[in-house]
Write a protein that binds this DNA or RNA. Structure first.
Lengths: 253, 253
DNA sequence: GCTTTCGAACATGAGCCATGTTCGTTACGG
DNA sequence: CCGTAACGAACATGGCTCATGTTCGAAAGC
């Protein structure tokens, strides 16, 4: 079992029952108590849980998004496939706006090898595109990063978006439905997504099926703004048909 | 001998004589030819030299700056000490503009642990400040990074600078003299430095002594714009006195 | 004050990275 | 067109780092 797997197990156990003791977690994972303690410290630093004497307590409220460090290791396969398909929708030479989130980070990994211009809206993607001298051209937007998420937001980000026009905006999402449109967990994020869509000729949403039919609390815009949705087979069929009849092209991988 | 040491030796040998064979370099460093080939590939990717059959040729013109990857390992000690002194000049709570370059990267490492707001002008420093959740607040400027240097330049950078005002601008330099003022190797860089100084109440230059009395080709501004210079004992005494009589406070570490 | 938990320090082992060696392939010179 | 030298892919090896476990003294809670 890898380090990340164990972290996932612990986070799930703590979230499901609201808390757990070090002993319980050691039994559950088969690791020693010392290792569990170290894991709990790590997860506490990531904001996944709260350390208490004897164990840990959950910090996550229902409906809230789990932290980036955890999501990055979940459903990697589906994300890779969605990323590959999204990348295939993009032609050489395009200028691309790339949203924050784990799926978009996978897309950044692929775009690095393509002759395109990319402006990523997360620190992780900036780092990925900046450290290797590939054929891709990197443009950095201004902004203030939101904690571990690394998503750039605020007036500097909006100003950078306002100053440029893109061929394609690749957007990740927290919630999408034909009825409630595109939604985000964070108001600042929602503003950035809104401005992103406005600055691009075409909007592609890359999202695994679990987000479809779900509605987060910050409204971005109606589903009719979206040209294409790339998702996987876990997407609910009724949402897919509703989105398609609203004019969005849906690619199911 | 560490990897970086050997790279430094190879780069120096190639630069000094304009070129070298794999055999020569293997003898010089005591490494195998295969290792030398791998090193040459790495250095070629960094833009330090050009690979030719049987060896390598220099790419650097006289007076040009060696690439970032090499400078980062040179005179680390002096840079650390200059960085520490520069950091000491900054009060908690200040908002700081941090220039690109290896010395400023060391300063970023120290500022990470301080309750300050930092806007770094290089990708490396953004990454450093963004990955660890320290007390420092990170603000990212927009811009286009210049290759391996990671220095942000262009209209987006200038716009970000124009939108903000800072307590202190910490500037690295390529050349500084009382007569010719502050100079940079790159015109875009020079424009950013100029705008940086204009956006800050106070300008601190952090530079090892080798840059003093030296003049690069892109003019930034007169030495009278600088409030404080932090340098080391290798700084030429006559330049130091000339700068001091022009009104700059000089700290020699 | 007693018990349990905690975490610092050290031991250990697995995995990774740098290096070297071998050998078939490729490029240049005659 | 052939011979020689260089090249680089593939594998072997060894050092180093990182994760894990163990021990034990300290600290926290009952």
């Amino acid at each position: 079992m890898s380090n990340a797997d164990r972290h996932g197990l612990i986070a799930k156990a703590v979230r499901d029952s609201g808390g757990a003791t070090v002993q319980e977690l050691a039994e559950l994972t088969g690791a020693s108590e010392m290792t569990i303690r170290r894991d709990l410290d790590t997860l506490a630093a990531q904001g996944v849980l709260e350390r208490v004497r004897g164990g840990a307590r959950t910090l996550l409220l229902r409906g809230e998004e789990p932290p980036f460090a955890l999501r990055a290791h979940e459903a990697v396969d589906a994300k890779r496939r969605i990323a590959a398909e999204t990348s295939a929708l993009i032609a050489d030479g395009e200028s691309i706006l790339l949203d924050s989130g784990t799926t978009c980070l996978e897309i950044a990994r692929l775009l690095r090898e393509r002759p395109v211009t990319v402006m990523p809206l997360s620190l992780q993607a900036i780092h990925l595109l900046g450290e290797t001298a590939g054929p891709a051209t990197l443009v950095v937007p201004g902004g203030q990063p939101r904690a571990a998420e690394g998503a750039l937001t605020g007036p500097l980000t909006l100003a950078s978006l306002a100053a440029l026009r893109f061929d394609t905006a690749v957007i990740g999402c927290c919630g999408l439905s034909a009825a409630d449109g595109l939604t985000a967990y964070d108001l600042d994020d929602a503003m950035v997504k809104k401005a992103s869509i406005a600055s691009a000729r075409r909007t592609v949403v890359a999202s695994d099926g679990s987000k479809l039919g779900h509605t987060a609390y910050a409204y971005v815009g109606p589903a009719t703004l979206l040209h294409t949705l790339v998702t996987d087979t876990t997407a609910p069929a009724d949402e897919v048909t509703a989105l398609e009849s609203a004019g969005t092209i849906v690619k199911i991988i």
